[in-house]
Amino acid sequence: MIPAQFDYVRPASLAEACQELGSDEDAKVLAGGQSLLPFLRLRLAYPSKLVDIGRLADLRGVHDRGDHVHIGAMTTHDEVMRSPVVREGCPLLALTAAQVADPAIRHRGTFGGSLAHADPAGDLPAAVLALDGVFVAASASGEREIPAAEFFVDYLESSLRQGEILAGVRIPKLGAGWGFHYEKFHRTAQAWAIVGVAAAVRRSNGSIAEARIALTNMGPTPVRARAVETALQGVELGDQVRQACVEAAADTSPPADLHAQPDYRRHLAKVLTDRAVRAAAGAP
């Protein structure tokens, strides 16, 4: 890797890290480095300073907080996918983290880094959006809560402000009767999702009582498929599910790239949403 020159600091406290970031608008947070380092390597980013938060132990770990699960930003994907607290309280995140890239990246890459990077092709943003996670941003002036629906602003752009660090995410626990699935469509195991669908579905008496669907790589940010969520309410598990998913690509603006054109992504969103919903509901 031959990046351009940058300064490097490794603060011992969150407060110090916030101060380093607040004083330099071209500074960047270095967490697991799995997104930032490729950008540096390709000289797509020229940060003046990297603020390495790798030693901030308080930011790492998963905690059961009764009505929600708190996941520290520096928790690795591998820790998320193996955490009993995650598997019990918000299994969709364990299912999704297990599909991020490959084992090497999952051991380095962090939950918070993946979210703060705000890449709509990342897997975790859609999953956290589907679960209505609450982002906790730390700064010199304290903590600020940001609902998932407001966190992702544009391509590679979050609502974090200068001097703020994503400290963790609170994932509200869903009650009994919910099922989960992350349907990732990609050409090779290590490739980005062409389209991904995160689904949480509550069943009641053979029908879908409630569904939350979010889509990966269908626009500049992860998006909730609200039209499908509405259409699925009360739908019996069976052929009707597919019909309810036809609007999956409504209000999306999927990108064109080497792997897919927008019309193909819209088609995939419908097919994959149907599959994700049925898998989440435990239906064939």
Binding site: L42, D102, T188, Q190, A191, L258
Partner: peptide, 16 residues
Amino acid sequence: LLTTTMADYLLPSAAD
């Protein structure tokens, strides 16, 4: 050339 990285020039691994 558009395929200058392995994100765009796809190689299979054992998993594929």
